[in-house]
Computed example of a mutant assay.
Amino acid sequence: MNSSLYTLGTAQLGMPYGVANKLGKPDIKQAFNLLDKAVALGIRSFDTATAYGNSEEILGDYFYQNQGIEHEIITKIKPLILDSQTPEDVAIQEVNESVQVSLERLKIESIPVLLFHRYDNLIWENCCLLDYLNKLSYIKKIGVSVYTPEQAVTAIGLDGISAIQLPTNLLDMRFIKARVFDLAEKKDIRIYIRSVYLQGLILMNIEEIPSYLKVAEPFIRRLRELSDYYNLSLQEFTVSFLKAIPGDNQIVIGCEAPEQVTENARLIKSVSQMNREIREKLFEKMGDIPDYVINPSLWKVNI
């Protein structure tokens, strides 16, 4: 398949998603209109998961009704609760059930890219689930969604991994600093970069930031000052930054409306990659951002 302009994140199609989401979950007509716009703009890669509400079903129905459109689906195994007491055959059965559900919902016979939604499921019992999946002819590429550079480095070192999804944005540069992208490029592993706007937090007006995220305000202000200095919007600053990352990467961007799909496509096409001077200034000014700012799972912990 020819390279997609970018990968459309579809969590927003299956459930209300993102701290900056104002429109909620679209109805089926709105979802199809958004997908129509994406396809018209040259987007052929779509990220989903069994955990994203009915996102898989929406994609399955859309492409079943629009057969002949070449596309790539990235989906994820449902998060599994496994421990040392779980029999291996039970774990394999749960993986199989998740895969079969995805195939049925997506109305496809093979999955182009299948990710473990949880890193600990990947490494459980010496990666026996990874070994099992690699024997299935209808799974084309296998990977994992990770949250830390340490997880990414371990995954890159495993045989049978060909895709990794990870967060990277103007506030979260951990994976760049840990040289994860360089390691992946050497092993011909594709990286899908998610959370590029940190669930929309990076683009929010200061007065709209919810009370539990006020700790992020000084960092957002610092980013705005830097992007203003270079006469770039935060969207342009983000895309320019991501384009400068080496390797076979796909930017994953979720959208709530067709207008956002169009704007993101325009940015991907028109914004040039960040030069070394601006990149160095960005690293210098932003420094190390605390985990409670860049990790959404910690955002409401102290409420």
Rank of each mutant, 00 (worst) to 15 (best):
G143V: 00
E88V: 13
Q199P: 03
Y192T: 12
E97N: 14
V90L: 12
L129F: 02
T154Q: 08
G200H: 09
I92Y: 09
L166W: 02
I139H: 00
Q165P: 06
L203M: 11
D182I: 07
E109I: 09
L114G: 03
I73C: 13
S110C: 14
Y119K: 04
Q151T: 07
Y147I: 10
E97S: 11
N96T: 07
K141Q: 12
Q165C: 04
M204C: 11
E185Y: 13
D83P: 08
D182K: 10
V144W: 00
F175N: 01
F116K: 01
A152I: 03
Y147E: 07
P167A: 06
C128I: 15
E88S: 13
E208M: 10
F181R: 04
L201K: 07
L133P: 01
E207V: 12
K107G: 04
S145W: 01
Y192W: 11
T75Q: 02
Q100R: 15
L103W: 11
E208S: 14
L115G: 04
E88D: 14
Y132P: 00
A155L: 02
V101L: 13
K78E: 09
Q93I: 10
Y197A: 08
L82H: 08
Q85W: 15
A91S: 10
I108W: 06
T168K: 05
I74W: 06
V153T: 11
D131F: 04
V144G: 00
D172W: 09
Q165Y: 06
D188C: 12
S195E: 14
Y119E: 03
S162P: 03
L129T: 00
I161F: 01
R174V: 05
I81P: 08
N96G: 08
R174F: 08
H117F: 04
N126V: 11
E109G: 15
T168E: 11
V99E: 02
S84W: 14
I123H: 05
G200W: 06
K107M: 04
I111G: 02
F181G: 01
T86Y: 11
L80D: 03
L198H: 07
I191D: 02
